[in-house]
């Protein structure tokens, strides 16, 4: 009895050691790089910047200044993130839905095609979309050749629509994966049962599929939102001219102005704003998709 207990305790502790060892690299990276650097900047976000020099201080007003000075770009950035994340998550959901429930044995092939868009660099994709949407791009050339337009349509590029299209294309495969995983776990019979009980296709998606895919919806949405809200390259390259994102101003604080406290305060403001948005979206989704 005593031996048995002892060996069980030993087994438990050796498994414990293995777990700790397996987690160690990730924990080291997380605490060493992420937590440590963020803590450093969090402390700095209360400091004071003078010309090319940073002085320890306690200035919560740094945050007030950020909201007062950069509220507009912050809202613009968050709205763009929301639009991109919503469009991408919805598109990804319908794609994953069709792959899972409608395409049958062609589904995996379609999924593979979608995932091949992961290949190719980020900038390459932006340039690809500039080529497609541009004045001498594929769309305009086709319309010109068909005689539908006399001059290239200028409104395809350099506006919010182009940003949404480009970022959606870039983020789509990343959003599809968790959603497809979640839909794979849903039994098709549930869909058939819902229809049998009188639910149309849309009702079935709303009542049966979406609630069960909610964690994945949230994961995809958060991924897209954070990447889109943190991006300032795509807006600079295909968006409205000079419509700077919040990230541009953060970059300018760190780079041009060497004002680390302000840059750090802006970074944490953005992080907090993103968390608030995601929490709101999460609770909204939860409420909306709750079985009644």
């Amino acid at each position: 009895m005593g031996d048995g207990f002892g060996s069980r305790a030993f087994r438990f502790s050796s498994r414990h050691v293995v777990t700790v060892l397996l987690l160690a690299p990730a924990a080291a990276v997380f605490f060493g790089l992420f937590v440590a650097s963020l803590s450093f900047f969090f402390v700095q976000s209360f400091w004071k910047a003078t010309t090319f020099r940073v002085v320890p201080d306690f200035r919560p007003f740094n945050y007030v200044d950020v909201i007062a000075g950069y509220g507009g770009p912050l809202l613009r950035t968050l709205s763009m993130g929301l639009i991109v994340a919503s469009v991408t998550t919805m598109t990804a959901f319908f794609f994953a839905y069709v792959v899972r429930f409608s395409l049958g044995r062609f589904g995996p092939a379609a999924l593979l095609v979608a995932l091949t868009t992961l290949f190719g660099g980020y900038l390459v994709k932006i340039y690809a979309w500039r080529t497609i949407l541009g004045a001498d791009g594929i769309i305009n050339s086709a319309l010109l050749n068909l005689g539908l337009i006399d001059a290239p349509l200028p409104f395809l590029l350099f506006n919010l629509g182009a940003v949404v299209v480009t970022l959606t294309y870039y983020l789509l495969p990343l959003a599809i994966l968790p959603l497809y995983g979640a839909l794979s776990d849903i039994d098709e019979t549930e869909l058939a049962a819902a229809r049998d009980m009188g639910a149309g296709a849309l009702r079935t998606i709303l009542d049966i599929v979406l609630p069960q895919a909610r964690p994945a919806l949230m994961a995809s949405f958060a991924l897209c939102f954070l990447l889109a809200a943190g991006d300032y390259v795509t807006p600079a390259m295909v968006g409205s001219p000079g419509n700077a994102m919040f990230g541009n101003f953060i970059q300018s604080q760190f780079g041009l102005r060497m004002n680390t406290p302000s840059g750090a305060a802006m970074s944490f403001t953005l992080i907090a704003a993103c968390m608030i948005v995601l929490a709101a979206v999460g609770s909204g989704l939860r409420r909306w998709l709750q079985p009644r």
Partner: peptide
């Protein structure tokens, strides 16, 4: 881009 706006400064510094 992947590091996100918040860590941009961290990287250079």
């Amino acid at each position: 881009l992947l590091q996100g706006a918040a860590t941009i400064g961290a990287v250079s510094a």
